[in-house]
């Protein structure tokens, strides 16, 4: 009897040892299988098949600015696309503010904010950055969370009046801050689960290569953009598309460095002109196309 228990004990211990010793295989990405019930898409258009193995985020087979797990086609009507893009920005900014993750506008979105605090009509995406602490915070507590908003779904179709869902997905490779990891320059995404539109989120990191050389106060992103810490921080509070937003400290300087002086003075761009009376970009009526 005693012998039996000893044997059982031995077996149990051995088994547990065995299971601990063998590494568990963790699934690194959320493929369409794991999103069943959350997506209305019938097939996988994620573009995963054509991407290199180490790449976490995929761009859809039909357009680089759509997530193929949630959509099958592009939004053809530019005004509908713009409404979705606006909601995307508003919901993202509201959520980040609510959970206390530090995020701010950059690139084209910052230029849009500079002119009239709106997305520029011809801009196809929204550019934001987060701090290193914020991306860790999002990864630890908010990865793969679905955020529901009671905003009217503009698209037609059944079930769309029930509001909108957005997915926050963090790239596990965010921990690798090296620019050599060029497959994973995007650290997280805020994805519209109805249309497949998304916001690319990149982390602003301390430039450790520069710090090794004894140069401090420099920042970088995995997409190789470089900034001075004092130009980004401290952030300022403003409004973008009607919701509170953070703006980098030296906003004009950053825009001038990236786009040149023209971008701040020229009132004609991409077949639009800026009307000062209503502070709006208006499409040129006599444009050929």
């Amino acid at each position: 009897m005693i012998l039996f228990f000893l044997l059982l004990n031995f077996l149990l211990i051995f088994q547990s040892r065995l299971s601990q010793a063998s590494p568990r295989v963790w699934k690194r990405d959320a493929d369409i299988e794991s999103l069943r019930g959350l997506t209305t898409a019938n097939g996988d258009h994620s573009g995963k098949a054509g991407d290199p193995k180490g790449k976490y985020f995929h761009e859809s087979t039909f357009h680089p600015h759509y997530d193929g797990r949630f959509a099958e086609t592009v939004l053809s009507d530019p005004s509908i696309r713009r409404t979705h893009l606006t909601s995307l920005a508003q919901t993202y900014l509201r959520t980040m503010r609510e959970i206390g993750a530090e995020t701010w506008l950059m690139h084209g979105s910052l230029l849009g904010w500079w002119w009239n605090r709106r997305i520029m009509p011809w801009d196809s995406d929204i550019d934001v950055q987060v701090s290193e602490r914020s991306i860790a915070f999002l990864a630890e507590y908010y990865n793969m969370t679905v955020h529901h908003f009671d905003i009217p779904a503009s698209a037609e179709g059944p079930g769309k009046e029930k509001g909108r869902n957005y997915l926050l997905e963090v790239n596990p490779y965010y921990k690798n801050g090296s620019t050599d990891d060029w497959l994973n320059v995007i650290d997280a995404r805020w994805i519209d689960m109805e249309t497949g539109l998304f916001i690319d989120i990149t982390t602003l990191r301390r430039n450790r290569t520069a710090e090794e050389e004894g140069i401090y106060g420099h920042m970088m992103c995995k997409d190789k953009h470089k900034y001075r810490e004092n130009d980004i921080f401290s952030l300022r509070d403003s409004i973008f598309e009607g919701v509170p937003v953070k703006i980098p400290y030296a906003y004009t300087k950053l825009l001038e460095e990236e786009y040149g002086a023209d971008a701040l003075t020229k009132t004609e761009f991409e077949r639009h002109h800026f009307e000062m009376e209503n502070m709006e970009w208006v499409p040129d009526t006599d444009s050929p196309e």
């Binding site: 500079w114 002119w115 403003s238 003075t265 009132t267």
Partner: peptide, 14 residues
């Protein structure tokens, strides 16, 4: 004609 300052005036909290 095309000169700095045609954009909306920037307001910040505080």
């Amino acid at each position: 004609k095309e000169v700095y300052g045609q954009n909306v005036r920037h307001e910040f909290t505080d």
